[in-house]
Design a protein around this nucleic acid. Structure first.
Lengths: 227, 227
DNA sequence: GTTAACTGTGTCCGGTGGACACAATAATGT
DNA sequence: ACATTATTGTGTCCACCGGACACAGTTAAC
């Protein structure tokens, strides 16, 4: 698995020319996941988009698990290069870039989960995040934990808004909020605080910025205290 | 779906006594997911643990999607009752309780994802979270967003530590950190900030508390500014 | 006692990931 | 030039999955 993610592909010395490459397979899978949802990505479906049969794919990738890992790291891409900035601004744009990435490939939210082999692109994202904090005075662990909080928040909000096309049961935004509001009004006595909060809510949908600024505020408090 | 999650089960007036109940089915499914992982939960496997055949389950639940929704809300349970406390302490224990819940049923991290019908237990968790902020001076939307950030962080950290037994490819902690460290040392020039952070890291594994306190600090800044 | 409502069963279907044997291909060693 | 050998692609087969559907068995209401 590590080999697949990190190894540099070597064309075989002997035997017939491969009709497809690992990257080509992953790209086809990404295209399918983007347009038809993650559930549509089957070995058969991927092979249909390539000039090979299903079983030929297993010559390039050991199994579907590994294919998903490769396509995930590939789809993650690398963070856009940004001019150097103070840590707060740098982390803010970093988070926004990450958010945009998750919105481009919503199925990444489902595949990049749990303890799994980390790919080069994902590591590059981490590198850029940590880089913003190298001169902050935080320890190495704290730098890791800080960008973990930020990426976690981005994930959470991306999950909230992304439509997860085709894949998991996708309620529309209005259907979701509709039943939510219905339940809260019909059972207001069971959930008094929630009902009250809903009444004084303006449905702003600015959860991303809100949480982001709170986390950055919290980091600022810690960084200031270290000076 | 909403009916399944919120409706009160009525025994049928006519016909044979049901051999199983929806709750019984969900409990069996939970037991399987806890011990063998979420992937082991198939209609066949659930039926094997009950005195009915696979197809009989479809008399009580429309499909597997709905079964997963029901078992998820059931496994989530309700937050333990805690004595009233200032918002900061209340939210801290609330987060810890939630974390413990995710650790008890790690597969919840996989099933409670995306826009989906919300069940009564999940709503009760939200209720308790928002309740801690009713007198904070924050608006309703802000209260929602605040507990969203907290629950998101808890999810992130639970994902980081939980073993996801059986289900998704579960690398052990040491195997994960091992390859991670190996890559970072062999390719230190590609990821200089990461490598430096790793060197000055004490492998504390206290990410949960770290992020939690940062978020609470950030909320405190906002709440103070409103006074 | 008949009817109607309801539960449970067996069979069948398309689709999935994957094992495995085999044929086709092309560079290498002689 | 030719045999060897590594490698790719193919076809067949399997267990398992979620689920449609027709049918039989059971029980309360009329």
């Amino acid at each position: 698995m590590t080999e697949l993610l990190w190894g540099t592909p070597q064309p075989p010395s002997r035997g017939p020319k491969p009709a497809v490459t690992l990257a080509g397979i992953a790209e086809a899978a990404i295209r399918i996941a983007d347009t038809e949802g993650l559930d549509a990505v089957s070995m058969q479906r991927v092979a249909d988009d390539l000039p090979v049969t299903k079983m030929a794919l297993y010559r390039h990738v050991p199994g579907k698990t590994e294919l998903v890992a490769v396509m995930s790291d590939l789809a993650m891409g690398t963070p856009p290069e940004r001019p150097e900035q103070p840590w707060r601004e740098a982390l803010r744009t970093w988070s926004m870039d990450l958010y945009e990435g998750f919105n481009r490939h919503p199925w990444l939210l489902l595949t990049t989960v749990g303890r799994r082999p980390v790919g080069p692109n994902e590591l590059t994202w981490m590198e850029h995040g940590v880089r913003a904090l190298t001169d902050s005075g935080l320890s190495g662990s704290e730098q890791f934990d800080a960008i973990l909080v930020l990426s976690g928040h981005v994930r959470t909000l991306a999950l909230q808004t992304a439509s997860l096309p085709g894949g998991r049961a996708g309620l529309t935004e209005e259907a979701f909020l509709g039943t939510f509001a219905t339940i809260l009004t019909t059972q207001a006595e069971r959930f008094p605080s929630l009902a009250a909060a809903l009444r004084s809510s303006n449905q702003n949908n600015e959860g991303l910025e809100f949480g982001l600024e709170r986390i950055l505020d919290g980091l600022a408090v810690l960084i200031e205290s270290r000076k």
